[in-house]
């Protein structure tokens, strides 16, 4: 990790501020984002309500009323920016965090993969190629958004990079594994959605009763492996 970070800060409304690094989807940038997120979280800055990492940004949501008491001559926005700049200065010397590797079983059976056939045909490859390419890489969880626990992972091999469906489905079953452009993701809930569905995992991505309700976190490394439908059914029962 370099000693300094080139970043720019801008307001995200009157009660949030965004720190942006670079201008592209990039694993190295995202690694810095996740590390910065973890570092800022550890600082426990007073009046900060949420810290939200995304691909190349970290957004900090803060309590204007609470912080105004400390910001006599300046705006709360200016004060929080000063906090962040100081934090980034001391952060630059922190060692990088290490990711955890999560292995996720996926059943690519046609019964659970309504778009795998058309996706293979579009790219003029076989369904087995799609499975081989999708399981052949380790993906990074760039961010969580859209739904609670929905992990945006990337990047998929160019040979299976496929745009979203022109018409989103009104209902995608929970556990569905999809592709949208260079991204791959898993629906934690039954939800409307436009991703190309190529399989389903029996793993529960979100559990309301757990203290850590989400199975995946930003910065995780993910490897998919293929399971037959019999095993899918068995694991689903657990």
């Amino acid at each position: 990790m370099p000693v300094t970070l080139a970043y720019h800060i801008y307001p995200c409304g009157d009660h949030a501020v965004t720190i942006e690094l670079g201008d592209k989807v990039d694993a190295v940038i995202n690694q810095k984002i996740i590390a910065l997120f973890a570092y800022l979280k550890k600082q426990q800055i007073k009046g900060v309500k949420d810290i939200i990492p995304a691909y190349h940004t970290v957004t900090i949501v803060y309590d204007v009323v609470l912080l105004k008491k400390q910001a006599a001559d300046i705006t709360v926005y200016e004060m929080i920016c000063e906090h962040i700049e100081k934090a980034i200065d001391s952060f630059a010397t922190e060692p990088p965090t290490t990711a955890r590797l999560m292995r996720i079983p996926v059943c690519y059976d046609l019964l659970l993969a309504p778009d795998i056939k058309s996706l293979a045909a579009l790219h003029e490859i076989s369904i087995d190629d799609v499975i081989r390419l999708h399981t052949g890489k380790t993906y990074r969880v760039y961010m969580i958004g859209f739904l609670p626990g929905f992990a945006y992972m990337g990047t998929v091999d160019d040979k299976i990079n496929t745009p979203r469906k022109p018409q989103p489905r009104t209902s995608v079953p929970a556990g569905s594994v999809g592709i949208a452009g260079a991204q791959t993701g898993i629906y934690p809930f039954d939800s409307p959605g436009g991703w190309q569905l190529i399989g389903q995992t029996p793993v529960q991505l979100f559990s309301v009763t757990k203290e850590e309700p989400c199975y995946l976190q930003p910065g995780d490394d993910i490897a998919f492996y293929s399971i037959p439908i019999t095993e899918f059914e068995k694991l689903k029962q657990l």
Binding site: C12, E20, D23, K24, T57, T59, M143, G145
Partner: peptide, 30 residues
């Protein structure tokens, strides 16, 4: 654009040229 966090009150421009204001149950990123 690359998706990033949005907040309550964010006014987004949809592809059809119309606006949406994010309310209490908004998605976390957009």
């Amino acid at each position: 654009l690359i998706s990033s966090a949005v907040t309550k009150g964010t006014i987004q421009l949809l592809p059809d040229g119309q606006l949406i204001i994010l309310m209490a149950d908004h998605q976390t990123t957009g």
